[in-house]
Write a protein that binds this DNA or RNA. Sequence first.
DNA 1: CGAAGATATTTTAAGCTTAAAATATCTGCG
DNA 2: CGCAGATATTTTAAGCTTAAAATATCTTCG
Lengths: 161, 161
Amino acid sequence: MTADLKPQPAVSGAAEVRLWLRLLACTNEIEGELRRRLRQSFDVTLPRFDFMAQLDRAPDGLTMGQISRSMMVTNGNVTGIAERLAAEGLIERRSSPGDKRTVRVTLTEAGRRAFAEIAAVHHDWVADLFDGLNEQERDQLADLLARLKASVAKHTEDRPA
Amino acid sequence: MTADLKPQPAVSGAAEVRLWLRLLACTNEIEGELRRRLRQSFDVTLPRFDFMAQLDRAPDGLTMGQISRSMMVTNGNVTGIAERLAAEGLIERRSSPGDKRTVRVTLTEAGRRAFAEIAAVHHDWVADLFDGLNEQERDQLADLLARLKASVAKHTEDRPA
DNA sequence: CGAAGATATTTTAAGCTTAAAATATCTGCG
DNA sequence: CGCAGATATTTTAAGCTTAAAATATCTTCG
């Protein structure tokens, strides 16, 4: 529809696809490296670490739904992760007194200790991986990603909430 | 070791972690949206589309190892994807004449047609999702990601090839 | 009160992903 | 030649992830 308003390169979207593939490769590289290190150093998976990170910021605990929303994954997904974390004694699940449908999840004392230990090292790992960018470049990247996220949201905000 | 050469904010790595989480969220958002659209419009998964994309650029086909390397996933992973693509009649696997260990994979005619149809729409989708960034911003993002990838590689290049 | 619809969560089926072990084949060297 | 190590791939076990269906509880409204 905008063909004569906005001249395009020979193949529509080719440059964007290259950029997208680079973004994906970069993210996967970092994610894979962090996953490997978490497994080797702490025998923990990235999703379990992420789950615990949500709880660590919420002293009173969170419901399963809150966790799934903040992790941006499906409800069913967090059920499985919670199952394994509970089996390891790192979290506790209690049915809410007010609303029996909801489950209130908290870190156990062991979970809080384990998370703190891992998080400290995790911070350093991430700082290391990003140390090839100076502060200005990091700010620039953060800004571009915010714009990109907004751009994506324009095309997705009309999904079933 | 560099503590007195390079002053750090109060919590080491906090800014980098925030940037990393933003990068991850942004990538997941785009990846999820593309996955959903591929499934709804073409009943195909992202990994299968990606697998076919590798083959489409290689008229003579590729070995399983070449495919797993270009997709940056494990060997075992591509075995499963190939199994399903072959069941759908989209690829063909032939034992190599020279080296009986290797498998030469090619797109079937149906596979080539299916890929072409999907790829055209996929290009447009990606272009749409990125249309909130102008050309300069896209170039800037590509450049920062290249630097980031290089930075990450510094810390990972010493892994078993 | 009681049913209809909304909300929170779990279950299920299918598929993706990894790491590690197993298989099969090839290559080089004595 | 024959075997030791290298290479290509598959298999296995465990876990992550999604979408859709099922379950359980709550809320609203007549």
